[in-house]
Amino acid sequence: MPVRRKSVGRPARTSLSALLDAAVELGLDRFTLSAVAKRTGIAEATVYNYVSGRDELYRLACDRLFAGVTLETDPAVDSGSWTDYIDNVSEQAVTLAAAHPGLTEYLFYGPLGPETVRIYRTIVDETMRRCPVLDANTAYFVASRSFLAALTLASHPRYHGAGRWLRQALTAGIDTRIAAGDLPELPGDWTDVLEDLR
């Protein structure tokens, strides 16, 4: 039977995952590093072994939380339209943002983490797949504007239902313009917008 050696040094008392959990539980819009440290049972100075400061912990917590959005749709109920797809993804994001104040600001202003960038890229790819007349710039524009418009109401619980109405009204109007061949001219590369938010 092999002999197991004990590792040298102190055992880990926390993890980045535990710090992220604590930040979300305390509230993305109000957690402090001292409160996160207290919740995880460590000294505040130990937090800096995992992150450079509150801003980084906020970004990582938001990124991980937003990564829970399901980008796949149920083929049995998916009509295949880009508008239904955006509505589904947006509803999930609005629900998350309503439950976690501070997430909306992250999605609007960044800095965006890698999972959030992956989600935006997937949304653009899915929008183009479902509406092949759109190039990547236009797909980003129509999908993100509809998505972000609904998020503006996430912090107002009484308007949550109105957010869905607003999003569906926007996408229906945009879809009518697309069908008429009326597409906006968008210079540059849409990924520059994401880079500006990183």
Rank of each mutant, 00 (worst) to 15 (best):
R121S: 09
D135I: 02
D189G: 10
L134I: 08
R121D: 14
A23Q: 07
N137H: 05
I42P: 01
T122D: 15
A150R: 01
P132S: 13
W190V: 14
R164F: 11
A61D: 06
W82E: 11
S79Q: 11
E72G: 14
D125V: 08
T70V: 07
D74N: 10
V3Y: 05
L134S: 05
L96K: 02
D192Y: 14
C62N: 05
T171I: 11
A35R: 06
V77M: 09
F141H: 09
T104H: 02
T138C: 03
L26P: 15
T138P: 00
P184Q: 02
R164I: 10
F108D: 12
E185I: 11
L103D: 01
L107D: 00
D135H: 10
S81E: 12
L148E: 08
T152S: 06
T73V: 14
D55L: 14
T32P: 05
D21H: 12
T83L: 03
P101K: 04
T122R: 06
C131P: 01
G80S: 11
E25N: 15
T127E: 07
T73W: 02
P111G: 15
W190S: 08
P2R: 12
T104W: 03
E115L: 10
S155G: 09
R64P: 06
L96A: 02
V89W: 02
T116W: 05
S144L: 11
R5E: 12
V8M: 11
D55M: 08
A43S: 13
C131Y: 01
L103C: 01
C62Y: 05
D63N: 13
T83H: 05
A143M: 13
V89F: 08
E105F: 09
Q92F: 09
S144P: 08
V124D: 03
D135W: 03
A162F: 15
E44G: 14
I119L: 06
T46V: 11
S144K: 12
